[in-house]
Structure formats: structure tokens, C-alpha cells
Design a protein around this nucleic acid. Structure first.
Lengths: 337, 337
DNA sequence: GTATATTATGAAAGCGGTTTCAGAAACCGC
DNA sequence: GCGGTTTCTGAAACCGCTTTCATAATATAC
């Protein structure tokens, strides 16, 4: 009468198949040869009972969770979806589950999100902006395998890092503005302080100006923070202050949206009055009018690479210390092309 | 010399604190009063050893994973990020981790993604398009707690479902086109067959036409599949066939992008020649030129509600069987307003 | 002051798998 | 036909925690 409340365990399967649990475990894991006849019996029993091994029991016995932990700053933005997509695909391919967690908004922390205290994942994928240097050092000293995304490890710690080529691409983009479109007063919208992508993009910008002997004017460098509202506010201020400029490197595509809005409100034409270029090639870059000239970032590839590196680490191999994924300039119409 | 390879266990803590492991467990879980003095000793020992309980051991002992499983069709699209954000926030608030998995692309399956065989999560959040009715029935018959998102349970099974109000909103939007902007030949771009959101939107569209005695013409109903490329191809075909229309309900915002592109290529003006309206109010709706009139969907709220319902279920409570979240029309300029 | 109710703590039995180790059975060469 | 391998299978220990149950210590009632 009492319906079977509890799910079947390995014991049930063993009993039904008339073998020992060791044998069931062996056909489960194919770790040691088992005679065909017994394999058949056991598999039949498993099917009958709709048996599924308890992951926790396995984990306890093997000390492996088969789970990868992904730590993100915040689940917003357009690039986050392809990134996750890349990570997920590699994870499942290799038999790993994916545990997701956010580090909470206000800035890099020195602690992992509580849930991750280490024993929930075999390894960690840590995105920039989640953990500060102290945090990274700390987790690393605990011996937790991890790879950093868009963030370099402190102290040259041997932690694999995968990120993208920012500087050269920005430089090429800015030089394009200078050479091809004769722009000389190019506004730079910076990323948040501490953001490495933003740092390198600024370096690329400076190098381009230097190369063509253009002065780096302080009033032409202002915060954009990769955020459309902040970028818009900054642009409005700059227009209000009548600072003169003929082009904007917005830092990223998201900020470009704010720039477009501010320029449109001021009745300035893109690209005739002001050339605008972004970075990331998010899907909205093609939607903007005029279509945004930007730099394509292989963000899905970042996820794929990082996950591969982490899995290599877990297999005891030595992954590339630094993977720098190439970016490519995408010329559309907002620069004047 | 040999550095401590293995992480400390509860035994180590007990030994260091000079108490039994039962006591350590009790201060860990505050399940039973423990004298202040001993609590202090144990906590000191935990801190010293940097002890963290092994999640797997806990799970095995308690039969609870403290993990919620999220099953998605595919990690693409703009609305996916806020959804996840909502889910994540409620999950962590209640002490749950989040395990993510995708069901793979080609259509609803009747099996869960392999990783989820059941024992990895206390309950499941299942998004539309992942599991077909057989799959849902099957998982439900196994007694796995779950809630469905944007998909109704088959056979009136008592599975909580949270989704959004599609029909009335669509009807209001289409009626707006008819009444306010005198449109009479309104093109409908449908969702994928089997997509419930698409189904109800189509119902709303039909009701609106009916209400105003406008004929429902077969040639004005065509596939959009909530996909910008498919929508664009469909629009191009319709323009080529010289089917006459004065407005488009694109089904969702993503499809609207394709519609905009096709109309622009044909030199048709929005909204003068053709009014265009979408659904979802994704962030790109404001970026499009002209800004897209659409219906705001509280997608983050869907995630929050669904997660709440699931947690209630896990606590043995009886959540709302059906949560229908309200949607609101957002008038911008693409309809003529 | 003893008998009884009320604690706080410890010993030990699981939870459901994996894995070591030893034994049984089948195979081999001579 | 027998010792020695080689295979396959089973018993039992173990992974690290929770939880029941018993016990020692203390408080309460009479």
C-alpha cells in the first residue's frame, strides 16, 4: 500500500539484479570489466527501477563534484549571455555541471559568494570585478583550481587568465579615426577605475594620439563606465561645457547608446558632426542608427577557452598561463565609412 | 614537512576544540542549544582551521542539496539576463545555489538534460521550450518539485506555473493601432508553433480584429518566430509579393529588429507608411529608431515569482497554481504616437 | 535530602556511493 | 591433473556530515 517514497539506491538495484553493490558500481562506472551477462542484468534492473545514482554520495566518495563554479559580478549586459553560452557548452561536453553565483554589486570583494565556500565545485571561473587581489590570493592559497576572466592574477601568481586584445584594437580604431576620417579632437569615455579592459583601451587611445603627435587633452577624457546612462550624462555635461570634439571613442557599445542619445538631443549628426565608435560588437551595434563602428570581441570564445583551461587544470595538465583572444575592427557607418 | 593536503573536516575541528563532532555539528547548524563557552571554542577552532563543511556530506546526510536547478532552452536573447538575475536574487536570499543547464536547441525534449537526473537539485525551474508534455509528466511522476515558466502544465497537473499576460496586452496594442492610428491591414508575425506566448498573442490579435469587425486575412499572418532573421526574411517575402499592409505586430521586439531592417531596405517609413509594434520591451526597444512601441514584460519578476513558488513548494507549502504577471503597453513613436 | 524533570554533550548508526582487498572460478601450460 | 595466473565478483571499509539515543550533569519539586 505504502507507495515507495524513497528513490531507489544502489542496494535496490543490486538486490533486484542478484549481485553485489560493488558490481553495480562497476557497471555504472565501467572501471573494471564485468561479464556481459551481468552487465545486462544490472542494466535491466536499473531501467526497471529508474535508478539514478545520487550525486552527493558519489561526490563524498570520490571527492569530485563534477561541477564548475562560475562567479560573476552581476547578471546584466548583453555580452553575458554569449559568455555563459560558451562556458556551458564546454562544461556539458566534459560532463560538468555549472553552478552560478554573483558576487554582489558593489565592487570587487575579497570573499567568494557564500555558497561557494569551495566544496561545491571542482574549480572556479572568476570574472573580472568579482574578486579583488586579496580575494584571488586567498582562494588560490587554499588550492582551489581557478581561472580568471578579463582580469590578470596579482603577484604573477600562476593562475590561468583568459582575456581579449584591447590595446592594439583600440589603437587601430582610433588611428582609423585620425587617418581615414581626419579627426583630431577625439573624446575618450573611460571604463570604471580598476577595470582592466578599460585600462588597456585607454592605453591604446593614448598610443594612437601619440603616434600622430596629437595632444592628449585632459578635458577629452571622461567617465563612461561602460554604462549607457553614465555615458549619456557625461556627454551632456561635455556639450554643456562646449568642449569641442569631432569624434568619440565610447569605451564600449553600451556607452555608445548613451552617446547617441545625447548627440541626437543636441541635434548633432553622426558621423558628419561627430564620429562615434564603440567596443564589443554587441548585438545592438547593428541596430543603432547609424550602425556602430566597433571592435568585435569573441566573448563566447572567451567562455569556451576559459572553461577548457579550467578543465585542463582539473586534469592536472598545465593550461596556457595567458590566453589573449584576438579582436577585430568592424567598420560600419558611425565613423564615417 | 608534508603540507596539509586535505582540507579540514569536522573531526579536525572537534579535536582542536576538544569536543565531539556532534557538538561541532550543532554549533554549525544551531539546531539545539550549546553552551556559550563551547560555542566560542568551536568557532575559534573553525576559524583557525579555515574549516568549511563539505556540501556533499551534508547533502548525503540530510537528503537536501540546497540547490535549485534551472533548465533553459538556450542561452540566447536579451530577456534571459534579467530572468536569471531575478532567479538568482531569490535563490541566494533563501540560501540556495543555482545550477544551470540547457536543454539543447532542437525543440522541447522529453528528457531533462543529462546532468539533472534529479539528485542534483531540490527542485527545478523549467522554462518553456525545454520539456514537452511527456517530459513534464515524467519528471512530475518522479515526485520532483518543479515550477514551469511560460508554459502550462499538461493534463491540469498540479504544477505551479508562472507566466505573463499576453492576450489582453496584445489585444490592447492592436486595438490601439486600429483606433488611434486608423490601421486596418495589420500584419501579424507569429511565434514558433507550440510557443504559448505566441499562441496567446495571436489570440489577442484575432480578438482585436474581431472586435472592430476587421477581417482576419490569412496572408497577413506569417512566421516571425521571435527571431530577427526569420522576421526579416518573412517581411522581405511579403514586400516582394506586394501584399498590402499598414502596420505590423512583430510578435516580439527581437523580430521587430528584422522588420525595421526590411522596411528600411524597402524605403518605407516607420510609422508614416507602416506602424510597427513589438512585445517584451527589451532594452533594444529604446535604441531602435524610431523608438519601438511595445509591451513591457516584467521578466525579472517572472524569475522572482517562480523561484518563490519553487521554494514554497520545497517548504511543503502550496504556492499559487498559476501566476499571471501583468504586462503594460509602452507607447513610443513606432506606432505613430 | 532524595526523586524527578531538564538540560548539554558524546557515541554510534546511518546517508549512498567508491574502492581496496581477498576469494572463487575459469583458464593456462606442463 | 595440478600449481599458477588471470578474471570476475563480493565483503567491508571509508568519504564527512546529521541525527537518534543514551548518559552525565544540572536544575527543580517535594
Amino acid at each position: 500500500m505504502a507507495s515507495k517514497i524513497t528513490a531507489p539506491t544502489i542496494d535496490d538495484v543490486a538486490r533486484q539484479a542478484g549481485v553485489s553493490i560493488s558490481t553495480v558500481s562497476r557497471v555504472l562506472n565501467r572501471t573494471v570489466p564485468v561479464s556481459d551477462e551481468i552487465v545486462a542484468k544490472v542494466q535491466a534492473a536499473m531501467r526497471d527501477l529508474r535508478y539514478t545514482p545520487r550525486a552527493a554520495a558519489r561526490t563524498l566518495a570520490t571527492a569530485r563534484t563534477n561541477t564548475l563554479g562560475l562567479v560573476l559580478a552581476e547578471l546584466v549586459g548583453d555580452f553575458f549571455s554569449p559568455l555563459l553560452h560558451g562556458i556551458e557548452s564546454v562544461a556539458v561536453q566534459n560532463g560538468y555541471d555549472l553552478l552560478i553565483s554573483t558576487a554582489g554589486r558593489r565592487g570587487p570583494h575579497n570573499q567568494l559568494p557564500h555558497s561557494f565556500d569551495k566544496h561545491n565545485a571542482d574549480g572556479l571561473l572568476i570574472f573580472a570585478g568579482c574578486l579583488n587581489d586579496d580575494g584571488v590570493r586567498d582562494i588560490h592559497s587554499l588550492g582551489v583550481p581557478m581561472v580568471l576572466l578579463h582580469q590578470m592574477p596579482p603577484d604573477n601568481l600562476p593562475i590561468p587568465c583568459v582575456t581579449i586584445e584591447n590595446k592594439a584594437a583600440t589603437r587601430a580604431l582610433v588611428e582609423h579615426l585620425i587617418v581615414r576620417h581626419q579627426r583630431t579632437r577625439i573624446l575618450l569615455l573611460t571604463g570604471e577605475p580598476g577595470n582592466e579592459d578599460g585600462y588597456w583601451r585607454e592605453m591604446g587611445y593614448r598610443e594612437a594620439l601619440e603616434r600622430y603627435n596629437l595632444p592628449t587633452r585632459a578635458e577629452l577624457i571622461a567617465p563612461g563606465h561602460f554604462d549607457r546612462r553614465i555615458a549619456q550624462a557625461t556627454m551632456e555635461r561635455i556639450l554643456r561645457e562646449r568642449i569641442s570634439f569631432d569624434a568619440v571613442f565610447t569605451g564600449d557599445d553600451e556607452a555608445a547608446v548613451g552617446v547617441y542619445a545625447a548627440l541626437r538631443a543636441a541635434s548633432l549628426r553622426i558621423p558628419e558632426d561627430v564620429a562615434v565608435v564603440g567596443f564589443d560588437d554587441q548585438s545592438l551595434a547593428q541596430v543603432l542608427q547609424p550602425a556602430l563602428t566597433t571592435v568585435h570581441v569573441p566573448i563566447k570564445q572567451v567562455g569556451i577557452q576559459a572553461t577548457h583551461s579550467l578543465i585542463q587544470l582539473l586534469q592536472g595538465k598545465q593550461p596556457e598561463a595567458l590566453t589573449l583572444l584576438p579582436t577585430t575592427m568592424i567598420l560600419r557607418s558611425s565613423c564615417g565609412c
